[in-house]
Amino acid sequence: MLRSYIRMVLFALGLMVAVQVPGFIKDYAQRVDAHRIEAAQALQGFRDTAGQFFKGDLNALVAHYRGSADPVFQRDADNIERLLRRAQLFESQWLALQGNWYQRALHMVSAPNHELLQETYENYRYQVVLEPEAIGWALAGGLLLAWIAEVLMTSVAALVGFGDNRRASRRHWN
């Protein structure tokens, strides 16, 4: 009986933790999108200049700034490159989060931006989203945690000698 209650508690715990996954991924995606838009706006003036003088090639604008004898322009080349790298980072993160639920989850496990991940974690508020995706995550998480606990408890019991029910097996076979 105690084992059943432990199993139910672990199922409920897994359910409550796993139901947070889609909400966290959604918050991360919104944060990525906000940073992506902000980076694009920061580059817009340079894009306009590159469009006017370098056929839209920002790298040509950077090379022009680097070729200048003026140290201010050379420093600006570094700043533009930094903005450009940041915009490309956010764009690639955003594109990775446009796939199916399992592609987003795989991206979050394998290649998130750690700065944004930490930022999302620090500002995340627990929520229960009752969407099919969240319900699926919750049930899968609950079943997985309950199954792992069951396997561990059964294994430990077998190692210690509990759960050896020879009388029951003899009763069934006779």
Rank of each mutant, 00 (worst) to 15 (best):
F11W: 04
L145H: 08
Q20D: 00
W94F: 09
A29Y: 03
S110A: 12
M108H: 08
T154L: 03
E115D: 12
Y126L: 10
W94C: 03
L43P: 04
G142F: 06
G14V: 02
Y5Q: 06
S4C: 08
V17W: 03
Q98P: 12
M108K: 11
V62L: 08
Q93E: 02
R85G: 03
G67I: 05
A63E: 01
W173H: 08
A111R: 14
A77H: 12
V62K: 03
P71S: 11
R85K: 07
A50Y: 00
F73D: 12
A60R: 09
L117M: 10
N100Q: 15
N123G: 14
A96P: 07
P22V: 02
F24G: 05
Q118L: 02
V160R: 12
N100V: 05
T120G: 15
R167Q: 14
L89Y: 05
L89I: 05
A18E: 00
R166H: 07
V128K: 07
K55E: 01
Y126Q: 03
N174Y: 15
L143A: 02
D57S: 00
G51N: 01
A69E: 12
G141K: 02
L130P: 09
F11D: 05
G14R: 02
V160P: 02
V151G: 04
N113R: 15
L106E: 15
H35E: 11
A111M: 14
K26E: 08
F73K: 13
L89V: 04
E131Q: 14
Q30P: 06
G56E: 12
D33F: 15
G99Y: 11
A29K: 07
R167N: 13
P71D: 11
A50D: 00
V62S: 10
V72T: 12
Y28W: 10
V62W: 04
R86S: 00
E122R: 15
V109W: 12
A40Y: 14
R47G: 05
A29W: 03
V156D: 07
H172N: 01
L83T: 00
G163D: 10
A105W: 13
D78A: 09
R36N: 13
A111S: 15
L145I: 10
G142H: 05
I25G: 06
R104D: 11
A12G: 01
V9I: 13
A34Q: 05
V9H: 09
A60I: 05
A39N: 05
H172K: 00
Q52F: 02
S68K: 12
R75F: 02
V19A: 02
F73T: 11
E131F: 09
Q74L: 07
Y126P: 04
F54D: 14
M108E: 06
Y121W: 06
L95S: 15
S169D: 04
A158Q: 13
Y5V: 13
Q118D: 07
T120P: 14
E115R: 14
L89C: 05
W173Y: 11
G142E: 06
W94R: 06
